[in-house]
């Protein structure tokens, strides 16, 4: 058994907007083992990105963590001071964002951004930092002379490689990748995912892959956590999620997506995702669920362990 790297317990992240309180992440618990890739899957508004950013406490001003704990390697990140959490970001937890064009500084050379990150966290000379930056670029498959390029001189795939170099330069224990390939074409996406998987092995790090694409997560991640409307509804090894999904939402999701290699009947999930300022009572999926019973509208189901590393939050399994 590998050891637990990250443990999230009963996390609540709410947004205080002028439309009311949006309960974007509500009572979510999740553990990530070391050297494991976890796919955090959900639609827009499911809370998957909020959960990802809450781990390093990077939330927009209206967002607040109102309860729960986030323990990384024995340290509760929610108890750290602002200065301490800043040291965790980058050094212990690397971030890869969806759109590298907006997350890289357009006026700074790629090399300078890498060197700045390294100098911020490590007590090394400029010369050493330069050497490390060049190595980090080679690590992601870019020639070291790209240190002198500006982001606009790179293609989308190359920019995402630079983002990954920034996230991995300090050899973090955990990488949070938020839709890292959504802006890219499939062939480039495939290369970038190959890179992430190989870096995971090489740096012995864990990765949380936030994505709307359950096929992508199923192919690359060891485990999949399915989120819907701020709740985590199922957490299981990837192959089991695909071959035997338990939660009606997971089942619906798998039945609703077309697949390139299998001609299958696709079925839609009825209805629309809820408004999180005013979520449905009980299980938040109940208005769309084909198996909903009276209890589902009244009481929120607990998340239960239903087998080795399998968790599901549904009254059908209690």
């Amino acid at each position: 058994m590998s050891k637990t790297l990250l443990s999230i317990g009963n996390l609540k992240v709410y947004y205080y907007t002028n439309r009311g309180v949006v309960r974007a992440v509500d009572n979510v618990s999740l553990t990530v083992s070391s050297r494991e890739m976890v796919g955090l899957v959900g639609e827009s508004g499911s809370g998957k990105s909020t959960l990802g950013y809450a781990i390093v406490r990077l939330l927009p001003p209206q967002g607040r963590i109102v309860g729960g704990k986030i323990v990384l390697d024995g340290k509760n990140l929610l108890e750290l001071s602002e200065a301490e959490i800043r040291k965790v970001r980058g050094k212990e937890v690397g971030m890869v964002f969806q759109d590298p064009l907006t997350s890289l500084d357009p006026l700074q050379k790629v090399g300078d951004q890498l060197i700045e990150t390294i100098l911020e966290h490590l007590n090394v000379s400029k010369k050493e930092a330069y050497k490390m930056a060049a190595e980090a670029l080679m690590e992601v498959g870019l020639p070291p002379d790209r240190l002198n390029s500006y982001p606009h001189q790179l293609s989308g795939g190359q920019r995402q490689r630079v983002m990954i170099a920034l996230a991995t330069a300090l050899k973090p224990k955990l990488i949070i990748a938020d839709e890292p390939t959504t802006a890219l074409d499939v062939i480039v996406q495939d290369r970038i995912m190959d890179l992430l998987v190989s870096l995971k092995e090489e740096l012995k790090t864990s990765i949380i892959l936030i994505t709307h694409d359950i096929s992508l997560a199923a192919e690359r991640a060891d485990k999949i956590a399915v989120m819907y409307a701020g709740h985590l509804y199922e957490y299981a090894p990837s192959d089991e999620i695909v071959s035997k999904p338990l939660h009606p939402y997971t089942q619906g999701l798998i039945q609703s997506i077309p697949d390139v290699f299998v001609r299958k009947e696709i079925k839609e999930i009825k209805g629309n995702p809820p408004d999180l300022a005013n979520p449905p009572s009980g299980c938040r999926f109940h208005p769309r669920c084909p198996y909903a019973i009276e209890k589902c509208a009244k009481e929120e189901p607990p998340i239960v362990n239903v087998g080795k590393e399998r968790y599901v939050k549904c009254w059908l399994y209690t």
Binding site: G157, Q158, V186, I187, Q189, S215, D259
Partner: peptide
Amino acid sequence: ALLSSVPSLFRRKREKVILKGE
């Protein structure tokens, strides 16, 4: 190359054609 890059839930075999560069 395109087909071997598309993520799938039910891929039987993964025989890749890798294109160089972009």
